[in-house]
Every structure is written in C-alpha cells, then in structure tokens.
Amino acid sequence: MLVKNNYKAIFFFLKHLWIDLFLIILYASIITTIDLYTYLHLLTIPLSITTVTGTIVALLLAFRTAQSYDRWWEARKVWGEIVNESRTLIRQVKQFFPTEDPDNTVAEFANRQIIWCYALSESLRKQAFSVKVQNYLDAEKISANNIPSKLLTKHSEQLKKASHNLKLDPIKQAQIDSTISRLNDSMGKCERIKNTIFPRSYSFLIHFLIYVLASILPFGLDDIFPFTEVAIAIIIPVILLAVEETAIIMQDPFENRPTDVPMTALSNTIENNIMEIITDEKVEIIAKPKSFYIN
C-alpha cells in the first residue's frame, strides 16, 4: 500500500504508462506538424463528436474505477476481519482453557495462527513460503495443496483433542469453533477476490475508446495556436489513461505490488498482538520499512 508521495511512487506509476504516453505524444506532434504544412487542417471533426466520445469514456471509466476500488476495499475489509478474529481466537483459547495446560495448547494455537496469517498472505501472492513459514511446516510435517486451509483444520483437530483432555465446556468449544469458521470464511473471500478476473473485454473497450478519442481530438481543436493544440491533444488522453491505469492497479489487491493490501504488515501486527495476549507483556513493534509503500 502506497504511504508516501515521492518520486519513487511517481516512477512506479509512470512505468505502466510510458508506452501509451510516448505513442500519444508522437501522434499529436506528427499530426500537428503535418497540419501546419499541408492541407490536413481542412479535415475537421465537429467538436460535438469528440465531446460525446469523451463523455462515453468518462462514464465507462467512472464505473471501472468504482468497481476496482470496491474490490480493493473489500480485500482490505476482509483483512481487517482477519486481524480481529485472530485476536479473538487467541483470547478465547487463553481465557477458556484451564490455567494448568500440560500440552501447552495456548502457545500452539498462537504460533499456528501467526503462521496461518503469513501463509495466507504468501499463498494469495503466489510466493514461495518464507523461511519462517516453511520451518514451521517442516517441523510439524504439514503438507497440502492449500496450506492455510490445512492449518485451520489443525486448529479444529487440536480444539477437539484439548476439549476432551481438559474437559472444556461445550458452549466455550462452540464459540472457539465459530471463530475458526469465521477465519475460514475470510480466507474464502480472499480466494474469491484473487480468482475472479476482471473482464478483459471491458478493459479493451475502454482502452480502445481512449485511443479513438486521442485520434480524433486534434481534428476537433482550433488550429490558431499549434502548441496549445498539441498540449491539449496530449493532456486529455493521458489523464484518461492515468485514471484507467489506476483502476487496473487497484482491481487486483493480492499481486505483490506497492498498491496491494499490506498483508505482510497486517500479519506483523497480528503477530505482535497475539504475543502480547499470551505473554501479558509489551512486545516491540516490528519497524516498518523506509519505503514509499508497505506490503
């Protein structure tokens, strides 16, 4: 997630636009130059046509941007739920289980929940598991196609075993199981967002219409001031392309990019909170990277 407006953030954005920017500048410059020295200026397109095209593009972009932000915001809300439910789970386990815990159940739940958060974030980004996660999986001999789901299953298995050994109240057991189920629901929501692709045809249509507008715009402008004409013919399409690119970047919040939902930072927060719950001591917050974004 972007947290600073510096030159690195600007360069990150421009690197997605530089080809389109180059083509539009080249086209506008060539058309204006030819217009000055030939009879091309006799070819005019009514400004009303350009206005209608621009209005259509603006309406489509407004819908596209709203839908993309909705996907990003839903992803952020889901991870907010994960933060809350992770705290709730460990608090319930600590409060409901007896103080005498020979199997160290609370610590195992806490450690597994921390690993679950990191494993989920890395799975959504399709990254190789970090050393921390992989070491845990190797130590516990856990192997599955869906590691986060397997870890939640381990939660349920240990809850069943501990409830039998520690004679846990059935109502309290049901409450803990309900929290695990809500974590599973949150994981499913993340997977739905990740696996639902925004329609490519819609993106192609908007991009095509922006280029149509860029193509006809120079022929609908006044030819009295050529440099002004070039500037307008460049600025308007570039602004529309920038809005479109913003929507494209936001529509996939789990792609390991600076604009993603900061799942790693949220997992760090969860780890910090869980350790404070089980130790009753203040835990030092992990320092944030000195970058223009947090991931």
Rank of each mutant, 00 (worst) to 15 (best):
M1N: 10
M1A: 11
Y7G: 11
F13I: 10
W18Q: 03
Y27K: 08
S29V: 04
I31G: 06
L36R: 12
L36P: 04
T44E: 13
I49T: 11
T50E: 00
T53C: 10
I56E: 01
V57F: 01
L59P: 07
Q67R: 14
R71D: 00
A75V: 05
W79Y: 02
I82R: 04
R87N: 07
Q92D: 10
F96D: 08
I115V: 15
A119V: 06
S123P: 07
L124S: 07
R125K: 13
K126M: 10
Q127N: 11
A128T: 14
Q134R: 14
N135L: 08
Y136C: 09
L137K: 02
E140R: 10
N146V: 06
I147Q: 08
T153K: 11
S156K: 09
E157Y: 00
K161P: 00
A162Y: 06
N165M: 10
S178E: 10
T179C: 08
D185E: 13
E191R: 11
F198H: 04
Y202A: 09
Y211E: 05
I224S: 14
I235G: 06
V238C: 01
L241V: 10
I248Y: 12
T264P: 03
S267R: 04
T269V: 13
M275W: 11
K282Y: 14
I285N: 14
I286K: 14
A287G: 08
A287R: 09
I294R: 07
